[in-house]
């Protein structure tokens, strides 16, 4: 019963977010279309690259299309549903967490779902289109793709919550959180086979971009239960750490005593 009410609450937040974003039609369409066009132009780099070099460490243009599809849709989904995952540090530093603490709802869930990013909807749609264009759209492959997108979205959300929760200890870590997101996106969008040894460990721990791009694509290229298992385990561990960090950090939070009226 409690879980059902919680889901209903989150659903209501998402609905409000979507309606308020669509209130301004022209900016909504411009941001959505602009982000898709932005991604298409960005991908042109890899078209030019593979036109010249054909393959880099076993990766071809089609693999890069799958990588862009998974990362764009994963990031888009995370920012559409939990758009505040990248803004927690800013919210805490400004003392704006008070408004969530006063309400009888799970704080983290309420914070995360209170904002949906419009451009990210463009990312999400772009990823779906790119997956179709990459070819091999069978039911099984599409199902695996959706699974990869959901896991990638969970990893993006969890790692951003974790990075942003540092604000409870460092007080000002907004910039660090921004750079962490940039690093996640940058490292996610390169062929996974480029990174070996210490670099690979780094990309599955400190900046877990391997879980948002390279590993999901490996699962799509050659599906096996072990890769899926590693992906699920990695995402679950990150989510557990994120939850723990936020809960422990929240105990250290001191109110900004700001009086804010939400309408």
């Amino acid at each position: 019963m409690e879980r059902k009410r919680g889901l209903g609450f989150v659903g209501a937040l998402w609905r409000v977010n979507l309606l308020s974003a669509m209130e301004y039609r022209v900016p909504f369409i411009m941001q959505l279309g602009g982000m898709m066009l932005n991604n298409v132009i960005y991908f042109a780099f890899w078209v030019l690259f593979f036109d010249r070099f054909e393959e880099v460490q076993g990766w071809t243009l089609r693999d890069m299309m799958l990588l862009f599809a998974v990362v764009a849709s994963g990031l888009g989904l995370a920012m559409m549903l939990f758009g505040n995952c990248r803004a927690i540090a800013r919210i805490v530093a400004a003392g704006d967490l008070d408004r969530y603490l006063a309400l009888p709802r799970p704080v983290l869930l309420h914070v995360l779902a209170s904002r949906s990013s419009v451009p990210s909807m463009g990312d999400f749609v772009f990823g779906l289109i790119w997956f179709v264009l990459a070819g091999d759209v069978t039911a099984a492959h599409a199902l695996r793709f959706l699974l990869a997108v959901v896991l990638s979205a969970c990893t993006f959300t969890a790692s951003l919550v974790l990075a942003n929760s540092l604000v409870f200890w460092l007080r000002r870590s907004e910039l660090l959180a921004d750079h962490f997101l940039n690093a996640m996106i940058t490292f996610s969008l390169y062929p996974g086979t480029l990174f070996n040894g210490a670099a690979r460990v780094f990309l599955f721990t400190v900046v877990p971009a391997g879980l948002t791009g390279a590993l999901p694509v490996e699962m799509l290229r050659d599906f096996d239960a072990a890769t899926l298992g590693w992906l699920c385990a990695g995402t679950a561990v990150l989510a557990a750490f994120a939850l723990l960090a936020f809960q422990i950090g929240l105990r250290r939070y001191e109110s900004g005593s700001a009086i804010v009226v939400r309408i």
Binding site: Y24, V26, P27, M30, Q31, G33, G34, M35, L37, N38, I41, Y42, A44, F45, L48, P119
Partner: peptide, 18 residues
Amino acid sequence: WTEDISAFRWIHQKISFI
């Protein structure tokens, strides 16, 4: 003239990059 310039910024940025 326009409410939001972010789309122009992204597109200019990516065209410049390429």
